[in-house]
Design a binder for these strands. Structure first.
Lengths: 242, 242
DNA sequence: TTGACTTATATGTCTAGACATATAATCGTG
DNA sequence: CACGATTATATGTCTAGACATATAAGTCAA
């Protein structure tokens, strides 16, 4: 017993089953609440074993497209309208991907014992030493973003001696610190005097702000604020939902 | 042959295997590039069948934490630093979740044949009729966001007769249109005269803008621009990466 | 040294079963 | 009719195999 009902199976069978169902959901043929055929029905339709259709349905459940209920069956979920995948690229990668010349400039670097404000920003009770960095990224010699960063040296001691005059701290951290988790907060402000000068825009011009707080297994790594000219930069997020 | 080496298996075995490995990656014990034990090694360690460890590893690969290479093994991926899950909640849900009173007000509603600008905004060559809506959301009677929306009636005919004076178009669409895909663009602007009046903020105050373009299987559904006061609203995105 | 060929092996997919478990539906009883 | 006990069933997890396939590594010839 094997093989499917129609068409050559270039992709593997479970992928085809998954794609078939996903298509019916996305076209609206199977609206939210609709019961997906039972596993044993799909087994019959595709002429395969239950593990195969189970793998397809499990992946759909993982992607939140369907909900699986014991004894009841699998149902198309109501779209969530809640989560989108936001691509926040490394700035250098983002600029070079646009075919523009990346420029980097260290404005300020200071090693100091953490102030109360620093601790607050890093979300720690008491920190030892930190590195505070201000720098600017540019595309084709036009200011692209200014970065204001704090690195917790008790988590990343090597950062004390790293040369941030050549390499942006973001790239350096990316290569020197393994997997982390982070939280981004996006907001809008108007450029004050200092920001306007750094970004070469008018005082009062809109700016997009990304605050990123990064940690690894409960240890703070770094906190950074990125300031972009609001009219020239955009964040794009794709998603599936309602 | 069954059961694992240590501790009671409250979660199922494959979940425990996945969690074990994920923990070692996230703590840095297994840095990027590190080779995960082969499936047959994990089979021996956990005393289970290969399908069980395969399921654990497959899920880790799906989450981009590891990369699997035939003949070579499975490796901890270099963190991507690229994608974050951004929660963009339904405005009503967002406000009520904060324990505040949601308010809605229809400012403007017009049914018209699509202008060139409308078609451009909807990303279609030529549209028939559209509904243009302007409305305002408030929290505890304080303006929270203004919405400027276009709905393509050739895709959603029912929207022509829907009563948007009571129900926000976002909620209505959520309940009347099945699964869709969307693209969000986030940027910053300063409030012009009209926006300032609608949001009860000063002209020139920063605003966060979300432009959302929604479609279902190649058919445009709606395009909407949401304008938030930039200092009072924040978008938060969690992620795992570098 | 280099390039072509062969081989070994880890993953990718799949099977035909199994038992566990949550729960919808049914049945019985007060 | 309301409510508790029972049963049927769809999913959840797992096994012990199988063959396919991409490819790293080794082999050999030019």
């Amino acid at each position: 017993m094997s093989l499917a009902t129609d068409s050559a199976d270039q992709p593997t069978l479970y992928k085809r089953i998954r794609a078939d169902i996903e298509k019916r959901i996305l076209t609206g043929e199977w609206p939210p609440g609709h019961r997906i055929p039972f596993e044993h029905e799909l087994v019959a339709r595709y002429g395969c074993s239950r593990m195969t259709v189970n793998k397809a349905l499990s992946e759909l459940a993982q992607a939140d497209l369907i909900e699986r209920r014991r004894r009841a069956g699998s149902f198309v979920r109501r779209p969530q309208h809640h989560s989108a995948v936001l691509k926040i690229a490394d700035i250098r990668a983002e600029i070079t991907a646009l075919g523009r010349t990346y420029g980097y400039e260290l404005i300020h670097r200071k090693l100091r014992t953490a102030t109360v404000a620093d601790c607050d920003r890093l979300g720690v009770k008491k920190a030892g030493k930190v590195v505070a960095i201000a720098c600017r990224h540019s595309a084709d010699n036009v200011p692209f973003a200014v970065e204001d960063r704090l690195i917790d040296l008790s988590s990343v001691p090597d950062a004390a001696t790293a040369d941030f005059s050549r390499e942006p701290p973001g790239s350096w951290l990316l290569h020197h610190v393994p997997w982390t988790e982070a939280e981004h907060t996006i907001s809008a402000i108007v450029a004050d005097d200092r920001a306007a000068k750094a970004l070469d825009i008018a005082v009062g011009a809109p700016c997009l702000v990304i605050d990123r707080y990064t940690w690894r297994s409960a240890r703070t790594i770094t906190a950074v604020r990125l300031l972009y000219p609001g009219d020239s930069h955009r964040l794009v997020a794709r998603f599936k939902g309602g």
